[in-house]
Nucleic acid binder design. Sequence first.
DNA 1: CCATCTTTGTGCACGCGTTCACAAAGACAT
DNA 2: ATGTCTTTGTGAACGCGTGCACAAAGATGG
Lengths: 219, 219
Amino acid sequence: MPTVSSEELAAAAGVNSAKLRKDFSYLGSYGTRGVGYDVEYLVYQISRELGLTQDWPVVIVGIGNLGAALANYGGFASRGFRVAALIDADPAMAGKPVAGMPVQHTDELEKIISDNGVSIGVIATPAGAAQQVCDRLVAAGVTSILNFAPTVLTVPDGVDVRKVDLSIELQILAFHEQRKAGEESSADSADDAEGTAPPAAAKPHRKGPDGDVPAVMPA
Amino acid sequence: MPTVSSEELAAAAGVNSAKLRKDFSYLGSYGTRGVGYDVEYLVYQISRELGLTQDWPVVIVGIGNLGAALANYGGFASRGFRVAALIDADPAMAGKPVAGMPVQHTDELEKIISDNGVSIGVIATPAGAAQQVCDRLVAAGVTSILNFAPTVLTVPDGVDVRKVDLSIELQILAFHEQRKAGEESSADSADDAEGTAPPAAAKPHRKGPDGDVPAVMPA
DNA sequence: CCATCTTTGTGCACGCGTTCACAAAGACAT
DNA sequence: ATGTCTTTGTGAACGCGTGCACAAAGATGG
């Protein structure tokens, strides 16, 4: 029986072994003292707890560049997701195959969701259409939404929304990049150091240090 | 002079007002007691601190569906990012316009980076090519990488990598979805409740509760 | 069957981020 | 000028997650 110790697993994942053991204990996954965890059993338990053993039908609404990329993304199928339908508002798209699947018109949205028992929807529409699409998805029975549109969606209680903003990750990188570059010349007259002038009426009394380290950005 | 109080801002953002004030104080953004924060000045300060007032040239490597979606994504330009070049390994892609910009061949990578002073690269290639592309980007002077390929990249010290896995967000949604569905029928014989049978050799002595709440998933 | 050795599971302490609560600061009216 | 009122900035307390350290459990060998 192939096994792994929490120590090996922790080293491979770059985390603390005690934390890993504690997390496993929350999941109810018991190992064997003196031996470790049965690999096969552990994989099965984690997969099941995470919902990977289930088949989740999802619909993707908005088949532009991003929608098509998602439809073609191989990582979904292996994680238990099945793209049940591709939906777009453009009548010219209807019937056109994307990722080996015909695009369907928004008119069919409610029927598709109910026929396939879809509870997870992906929104890849322009920002303007997102809330409207969201409302229709929720009304049709979807209770989890992954939103790629740059808008904050309003949903009733009981519906989960996760927002993915592609530019936020870039911003975080740029933030660190800026910090790297600015490291040699600190403690300068920080206000107009960056080329762009501050607003005219601004800067009422500015007292604080400017070169300190904000603690508000993810590492 | 239009102003906002920390209370208003906190309510709009759904966070605690004290935290918001403390964060602002780290940034050195001083408000006026009894009045609040000067909106225009605050926006300028935050933009500058976040690097939004700078122009960041980026290259996108791997112009498949995802790469094209990123190239077309409008959110970048408004956040201070400028797509300096689109790069792909496929000779057939070279010269083809994507998002109003000709795709260039991988051979040009080093020259493009050095000519444009690019320090941020986006990898949207298949998993197999990602590490190789990463190495070339780093060798050419890139110090921040946004990785969409499903691989963990190895980089030297001083280089930042952020990985975006589109399916992780879906998994988190599915996890909560599963929890919603399983709420009525708890405390059952949890093992084969999900249809898929557990491995034969598994389940050595299983003692712990199965219906408890793991604390390892983002809200 | 007992001793030893390995690895788990977890109580406890430490550290960090969040929140509370309030003194200080400034605006504004009188 | 002086008092009142609003809102900031921050010291202190609280709570939570992480990591340490060890007892308990079970395997393995003599």
